[in-house]
Structures are given as C-alpha cells and as structure tokens.
C-alpha cells in the first residue's frame, strides 16, 4: 500500500495522469455540434496599433533634458542686469506621428526657500518672443503677466522642428532701483533702513510643451486643452 501511495504521489505519475486525462477529456469533447462544419478558413486577423506621440523642447539647438538655462552663464560668471543672453527656444517632434503643439511659459520669482513671491513683477524677466503671428500665435485669453501661451499654427511633422519662439533673455536692470526704505526714530537719532526688494530672490522660467495628434485635431484640442481652435488645411487659428 505504501508503494502505491508513493507511486501516486510521484510527480511523474501526476504529470502523466494529467496529460492523459487532458487528452481523453479533449477527445470526449469532440461532439456532434461540430460535426456539420466541414470546411474551415484560415485565420483572418487584423492588428490595430497606436503609435507614440512625443515633443521635446529645444534650447540653443540642443534638446532640453531637465533644466533650462544650464549654459547661460560660464562658471563663475555673474548675471548682468540688462544684458541680452542668447536663449533660442523651439520645439521638436520626437514622436512617430505628426502633431499640433503649444507652449506655456511661466515666469516668476521665488525666495530663498523656493516660495513664490507674487509681489515681485514677472515682467522684469524678459524672454524675447519671436515669429509671433507668422508661426506662433499668442493666446491672449490665457496670457497674463506671469504666463504666456503660444500655439504653433501649423502641423508639426514627425522628427521635425518648429521655428524659434524665443531668442533672448534679459533681466531688467530696473530691479536694482526697486528699494524699500524704513525710518525708525529713537531718541534724537533716526535710523534709515534701505531694503532691496529683489535681494535674495531668484527668477524662474517654466516652459511646458503639449502636443496633440493630427487626426481629429480640432476636437482633440478642444477636449485635451479646453481651447476652441479652427484648423483649415493644416493651419491652426485660435477662435
């Protein structure tokens, strides 16, 4: 009896039993319902594939990975107020399909802790926009002092680039004049404290690029971005 149990418990016996059982049960399932179907076709298969859509911001001819303005200043160099630095920006279609693109640019100031300082003017961060009207459309509804939204008005083919939408960056020199003054009188003395508003502040530029597929793009933009646009013969116009 022990031998029998040992035999039954053997993996080989189990596997063999399963295999034979499967075969027998399979055979037993060949029944009358199938008997009438005599001639069978090959498999007619169709594959549906969705491809990748991709966009990349290009800065001074190189794709941006992570941060902007890495090469703006040489090592040890300090930013000069009022100086126009080269900052050429455009968009590259790194995906497989053609697409429509837009760029949202945010400019603002933050303090030492990285907290936004809304009271400091974003207008002093001067990013010079180019090719406006010809290639890039400014969405006036969405544009504020802090934000600018640009739409590329043509279809951007896969693996191709747009014209520039910005070429220079300048920090307005007038920020040096922005001072605050407090006076404190104690006894016969008056203490005057002058504070530079921008002292310790950092400026930030964010650029976010969105792309939308070519097919059905007008409604795709409405759905994805909320914005109503019209596309005629591949030319995009803001409603």
């Amino acid at each position: 009896m022990k031998k029998l149990k040992k035999l039954i418990a053997s993996p080989v016996t189990t596997i063999a039993a399963f295999a034979v059982a499967a075969g027998l049960l399979l055979f037993s399932s060949i029944g009358g319902a199938r008997a009438a179907l005599t001639y069978f076709s090959d498999d007619y298969a169709a594959n549906i594939q969705l491809h990748e859509i991709g966009v990349t911001l290009v800065e001074n001819g190189a794709p941006v990975e992570g941060e902007l303005l890495k090469g703006l200043l040489a090592e040890g160099e300090e930013l000069k107020l009022g100086k126009a630095y080269q900052e050429q920006l455009n968009v590259y279609n790194s995906g497989v399909i053609n697409e429509y693109v837009r760029v949202s640019i945010h400019k603002y100031w933050v303090d030492r802790e990285g907290e936004k300082i809304p009271s400091l003017s974003p207008e002093l961060i001067g990013l010079n926009l180019v090719n406006l009207g010809t290639d890039w459309l400014v969405d006036q509804e969405a544009t504020t002092k802090e934000r600018t939204v640009l739409y590329y008005n043509k279809l951007l083919a896969s693996q191709s680039e747009t014209p520039l939408f910005a070429d220079k960056l300048t920090i307005d020199g007038s920020i040096a004049d922005r001072v605050g003054e407090t006076r404190e009188t104690s006894g016969g003395y008056t203490t005057i404290t002058v504070t530079y508003e921008y002292d310790g502040a950092r400026f930030c530029i964010e650029a976010k690029v969105d792309g939308v597929q070519e097919h059905n793009a007008q409604d795709a933009i409405w759905s994805a971005w909320g914005r109503r646009v019209t596309i005629d013969d591949g030319v995009l116009r803001l409603n």
Binding site: I53, K208, D219, A224
Partner: peptide
C-alpha cells in the same frame, strides 16, 4: 537661476 522645464505629450482627443 532656477530653471524648470516640463515636457508633456498629449494624445487625448
């Protein structure tokens, strides 16, 4: 200088 860049591809339609 603090610079940020956010890249996003959107396929929604």
């Amino acid at each position: 200088l603090l610079t940020l860049v956010l890249l996003a591809g959107t396929l929604i339609c």
